[in-house]
Each structure stands twice: as structure tokens, then as C-alpha cells.
Design a binder for these strands. Structure first.
Length: 601
RNA sequence: GGGCGCGUCGCCUAGCCUGGAUAGGGCACCGGGUUCCUAACCCGGCCGCCGGGGGUUCAAAUCCCCCCGCGCCCGCCA
């Protein structure tokens, strides 16, 4: 990277100065009239006014009313009082609003200068020392991903990217459950000789095969018997008991080597799918670690000493949860089974204590089905005297096409691998139809980028707490508000710049001649990225960045259509600089969303 | 039954945290655009009063209450 991190004093946002100017200017003018306004509230108000009728707008209803004055009249008065000299903003009154518009040439100059200086780091905020641990995905290694679960990984990965851009050192965890009963099912069945497999389980394997077919990923192959076996376990008590004793061995660290081996293989297959979406982890945290290092035992000891610890008649230990506001107040939070083994919540507690020891901020991305668990965790943290809490980001599951829950067993699951393959294959067709000049390798590369990005964006564009139904047509759509629209915008900018003979970000002095409405709209959109990053980092609304990406690409496509660049006269250099700024900014936005940035399409 | 989330044009969706100016986009549909930097594009048109009711407020898609619909959860599973 060309660009060093910004120093404390360095500007990162073109709106920083104008906002400060309005805050101090308006409060000074009001003070002269014996009025006051809440600066912090106004700051938020201004942040939210981007995209409105004015660049920065101050509603005066409240202040005026408190002073018994007519808002519109006050707005007019303040407009006249606003210093015309020394200000980069034009003040105007519209009804009760005191509006400020940045002078377009000034805004273009500031924005392009900033993008030129920061390069690929434009959009990044000032660094902070507060490190964050983001845990996401954490799906059990017992079979391939389906779309319902993968929303977690996509949201979590994007949030981690955004937090990094917001200046945090970020560590991403995948918590791998290799301990509980669910985790034991796979190795338990595969550790048995084939002759001992229940027929229903055996029937899930391809006939005559002895191992994974060459073209079948390990998560798919070893995951084959899982649905059938878990169904059998619900009906067959002796089978369940057999699994129980196997699971106890696992928890006690006496599992056959096959256990860890299969967990790792299946996980590898799952991670390979996620890697196609650009998702990677800093650390795989194996749950068994907390059993091995004694931290679960220590946690159990702490829980037994907790204020509301009770032992059940059969020997299990629990926390009396009455008073924690959980549903079914009379129920108890069991933390050791009758046989003395630990439960998921107990181990998760040990894991969280290890996270708190290393990170000031801890974020967990969880499906809506884990809401109660998060409350249980909080209650248990209180019990052990831990004041800190993770920040939870919840998302609703993606439902199967019919509207039912996505379930492997019910056959309603849509697998990530299948969706990716289909998307890439469709992208391949599209590329071939448009580009006869490319060689096979180039076509493949573009198709992979377009297909994978389309899948990722189709999930990212919707607010996490919105329940959505999966639809093939939507996930595979390549037009309108989709990733290909964004990627195409980037590819267009890149091609244009290549023809112009330079791909670098703009130079400081080049913003002079951007006067077309399309150009001014594009500049405004470019100027907003740092604000969008700040908002997304603060709220966890990663989809707001997805929305922004579309607005940026849209503004560029319009501009591209309306304003010639290479054939332009005096404006040529300014326009090339604008395209360069767009390419840089859009590239960063695509990176933050985990989408590809193809040089051509 | 209880808890939580969601309910915005024919379909999908932003805005709801921080109440404020004619509620933004996309798909579909209709009509235009390629002797010119990639038409996975652009321009225009059509379409909603924000699930229903009540309340707070100068002002409610946004806050509060009730109701309806959908989803998730309520294991010594994870």
C-alpha cells in the first residue's frame, strides 16, 4: 500500500470540517440570541441528513418553539447572519430548516484530494487501540453448509472488515464444536464397521464406494449419514445410549484419533466453500481446548460456588435462574449433567472468559435461534461475577424456497456449494455471450468472481434481522441491485483508466472542471464513504454499506453515460481524476463487502 | 401460553437507533437510447400514505400501548 495509516490529526472524512463548522457556527449564532442547542444531538442529526435535500440541514422547530419564535423566521435570520466570507458552505433557509450546501467545486477538491492522499485507505477511519474479537459462523463440522447458516458467516466476515476499516484491530474466531453430542455423531458412526451401520444410514452412501469420490468434498461425503443417523437417534434409545458413552469419551479426551481427524476433514470442506466467498478466520478455536486446559473444570467450580447454584437429586448441577427474567422462571440452568459431563453453555462460558481476558470488545454473531442461549450466557456471567458482556449481532435464518425451515433432513436445504456452482456457471454463460475475445482462463476467472460475489451480495443486501425466503431467481440475478452491477461499474472504470494510461488515484489539483450534475452527484456519493463506514461499524448494520455500494456504482454508471471522458476537451484531466477516485473508492467498498474487483468483465 | 424479531408499491427492499421538508432503490410492466470510453448499462413513465387501531407530539414509516399475520426460541441438544 502506498498509504500510511492516518495520524491523529489527519483528516479522514471530507465532511469532518463542514460538520464542525456548522456545529460551532450555528451554536454561536444561537447563543448570540440567547438560545442553545444540543451539540451531540445535532451532530447525529447532521450525520443522518446526508442524501437529503441539503448537504447538512438543521431543523429549527424545537429551538424556535422553546424561544417562542417562528421557526421559518429564525431560519431566515440565521441565514442572513451566516458569514459569507471564510465559510465553505452556502447557507439557505427553507421553511423551518437552516440548510447548508457545500460549494461543489470545493467539495470536489476536498474529496478528490483526500482520496488521492489516502488511496486504498480512503474510507478507513482513525486507528483506535480497542481491539475486537469477532466470533462468527461456528457451525458444527457435521456436514456441508446450507444457505440458511451461511448468512452468519457473510454478515460476520463483513462486519469484521468494517470494524477494521473503522480503525479497530480485529481478530476473527470460528468456534469449532468438537465436543458435544452433535459433534460426536459423525465420528461415532464412521468409527463403526460398515456392517454395524443401521440400514438407513448405510443407504446414504454411494454404492460400492469406500471413500469420498474424487469430486466429492469431505463435508458432503462424511456428512452423508448425519441426517439419517440423527433421526434414528431420536427413535432408538439404545443407539442414543451408545452415542452417549462415545460422547463422554470425547469429552474426557479419550476419543479415537478418527474423531479429531474427521472433524478436521469435514471442517476443511466447509472452510473451502467459505473461502470461495472470501471468508477466512484468524483462529479456529476448538471447543475441546477448554476441556484440555482445565478451564471448563475451573468454570464448573466457579459455578458451583455461585450464589444460586443448586444440585439436583440425580447429581446434576444447575443455577436457579429465578429472577433473571428468563422465560420459565422456575426452570434451572443445568451446567453439569448427572454423569458429571459439561454442557454447551458451560463450555461457551469458559470460552467467553478466555475472550474477555484477551479483548476489550467481544462480538458474537448469532442466529435468532440462539437468542435464549445469549440470555442464559449473560445470566451465567452474572453468577460468576463477570461484569462484561459480549455484543450480540443477531440475524434471522434464511428460509427454504417454500417458506419452510431449511433442513437437510427434510430435503429443503439449498447447499452453498450448489448455489455457488450454479451462479458461477450462469456467470460463465453471460461472460461468453459478451466477450468473444477472452481466453478460457480469463472467462473462468471472471465467472468465479461474478458468481461468488452475486451470492454474497444477495445475502448482504438485506438487513440481518429481516427473515428472508431463498429464491433462486433472486440469488442468481445479475441485473439491477446485484453484485454484477457493482463489479461492472468497477470494471468499466478500470478499463477506462487503462485506456487513459493511468490507474493511480487522483492528483490533488485535478478537480476543477466537474460541473455536470452527474459528476457532482458522483462526487457527493464518493464523499460519503467514511460516514457510511462509521455508521455501519457503530450499528452493525452491514447492509447499509451494501446499499451505499449500489448508490456509488449507480452514480458512476450515470456519469459514464452522460459525460465523455477520453474524448473530452479541457475537462479531460479532471474527469480522469474523477474516474480514478471512483475506482479507488468503489474498490475499497467492494473489499469491505468481500466482493471481487474484476479488472474487466 | 410466554419471550424475541419481522410486516413499507404486483414482487423484493432502504429509511426506524438520533420523530421533521414531495417515503428512496431494484424486479416486473410501458416508451426511448449503441456510427461515440464494455447496453451485466443509461433516460423517461407507471406503481406505495408505510399490517390494523389507539396514544404522545407543532410534526409519526420512525416513539408508546393493544390487536392481527408470519418466523424463531422456551432440552441434563448445540
Amino acid at each position: 500500500m502506498l498509504s500510511p495509516p492516518p495520524s491523529e490529526s489527519e483528516e479522514v472524512d471530507p465532511w469532518e470540517r463542514p460538520t464542525a463548522e456548522v456545529l460551532s457556527g450555528v451554536s454561536a449564532l444561537l447563543a448570540e440570541r440567547g438560545l442553545s442547542i444540543d451539540i451531540e444531538a445535532l451532530r447525529l442529526e447532521l450525520e443522518g441528513s446526508a442524501g437529503g435535500p441539503a448537504d447538512l440541514s438543521v431543523p429549527l422547530h424545537r429551538v424556535a418553539r422553546q424561544a417562542g419564535r417562528d421557526p421559518a423566521e429564525l431560519a431566515g435570520e440565521l441565514t442572513k447572519a451566516w458569514p459569507t466570507r471564510g465559510s465553505t458552505l452556502n447557507a439557505s433557509a427553507k421553511g423551518a430548516y437552516l440548510n447548508f450546501d457545500a460549494e461543489p467545486n470545493q467539495l470536489a477538491a476536498t474529496t478528490l484530494l483526500l482520496i488521492g492522499l489516502r488511496g486504498e485507505k480512503y474510507g478507513f477511519l482513525r486507528p483506535t487501540a480497542t481491539s475486537v474479537c469477532v466470533e462468527h459462523t461456528s457451525a458444527n463440522p457435521n456436514g456441508p453448509f446450507h444457505i440458511g447458516r451461511v448468512r452468519n458467516a457473510i454478515i460476520g466476515d463483513t462486519y469484521a472488515r468494517i470494524l477494521r476499516a473503522a480503525g479497530h484491530p480485529v481478530t476473527v474466531h470460528y468456534y469449532v464444536d468438537d465436543v458435544g453430542r452433535q459433534a460426536a455423531v459423525i465420528s461415532w458412526i464412521w468409527s463403526k464397521p460398515r456392517a454395524e451401520w443401521p440400514p438407513a444410514a448405510l443407504a446414504t452412501l454411494p454404492t460400492g464406494s469406500d471413500g469420498p469420490a474424487l469430486n466429492e468434498k469431505p463435508d458432503h461425503y462424511y456428512g452423508r449419514p448425519y441426517p439419517a443417523v440423527s433421526a434414528l437417534l431420536k427413535e432408538d434409545a439404545s443407539l442414543a445410549a451408545d452415542l452417549g458413552s462415545y460422547a463422554k469419551q470425547v469429552e474426557e479426551g479419550r476419543a479415537p484419533p478418527l474423531h479429531r481427524e474427521l472433524s478436521a476433514k469435514v471442517l476443511d470442506g466447509m472452510l473451502a466453500s467459505l473461502a470461495r466467498l472470501g471468508i477466512r478466520y484468524d483462529e479456529l478455536v476448538w471447543e475441546s481446548r477448554f476441556l484440555g486446559d482445565g478451564s471448563v473444570d475451573k468454570m464448573i467450580a466457579r459455578l458451583k460456588a455461585a450464589p444460586h447454584a443448586v444440585q439436583e437429586e440425580n447429581g446434576a448441577w444447575a443455577i436457579d435462574a429465578t429472577g433473571y427474567g428468563l422465560p420459565q422462571e422456575s426452570s434451572r440452568l443445568i451446567f453439569t449433567r448427572a454423569d458429571g459431563t459439561s454442557l454447551y453453555a458451560t463450555r461457551d462460558l469458559a470460552y467467553h472468559e478466555s475472550k474477555f481476558a484477551a479483548f476489550p470488545r467481544v462480538i458474537d454473531v448469532l442466529g435468532a435461534d440462539h437468542l435464549l442461549h445469549s440470555r442464559v450466557l449473560s445470566a451465567l456471567l452474572t453468577e460468576i461475577g463477570e461484569p462484561r458482556r459480549p455484543e450480540f449481532v443477531f440475524y434471522q435464518y434464511i428460509q427454504a424456497p417454500g417458506g419452510s425451515k431449511m433442513s437437510t433432513r427434510a430435503g429443503t436445504a439449498v447447499y452453498l456449494d450448489d448455489l455457488l456452482d450454479e451462479a458461477v456457471s450462469r456467470a460463465h454463460t453471460e461472460v461468453l455471450a459478451r466477450r468473444e475475445d477472452l481466453d478460457d482462463a480469463a472467462v473462468d476467472q471472471i465467472a468465479e468472481a461474478v458468481g461468488a460475489s452475486a451470492v454474497r451480495y444477495s445475502i448482504l443486501r438485506v438487513a440481518p434481522d429481516k427473515p428472508v425466503q431463498f429464491r433462486w431467481e433472486e440469488a442468481l440475478s445479475f441485473e439491477g441491485r446485484t453484485a454484477p452491477f457493482l463489479l461492472y461499474s468497477y470494471a468499466r472504470a478500470t478499463t477506462l483508466l487503462r485506456k487513459a494510461g493511468r490507474l493511480e488515484p487522483p492528483y490533488p489539483s485535478e478537480a476543477g472542471q466537474l460541473v455536470a450534475p452527474e459528476e457532482r452527484r458522483l462526487v457527493r456519493t464518493l464523499s460519503r464513504l467514511p460516514g457510511v463506514v462509521r455508521y455501519a461499524a457503530r450499528t452493525g448494520h452491514v447492509h447499509s454499506l451494501a446499499t451505499y455500494a449500489h448508490e456509488l456504482a449507480d452514480a458512476f454508471h450515470s456519469c459514464y453515460q452522460a459525460v465523455p471522458v477520453l474524448r473530452a476537451g479541457a475537462e479531460r484531466e479532471s474527469r480522469i481524476a474523477l474516474v480514478a477516485a471512483t475506482r479507488t473508492t468503489l474498490g475499497t467498498t467492494l473489499d469491505l463487502l468481500g466482493l471481487a474487483r474484476p479488472e474487466r468483465m
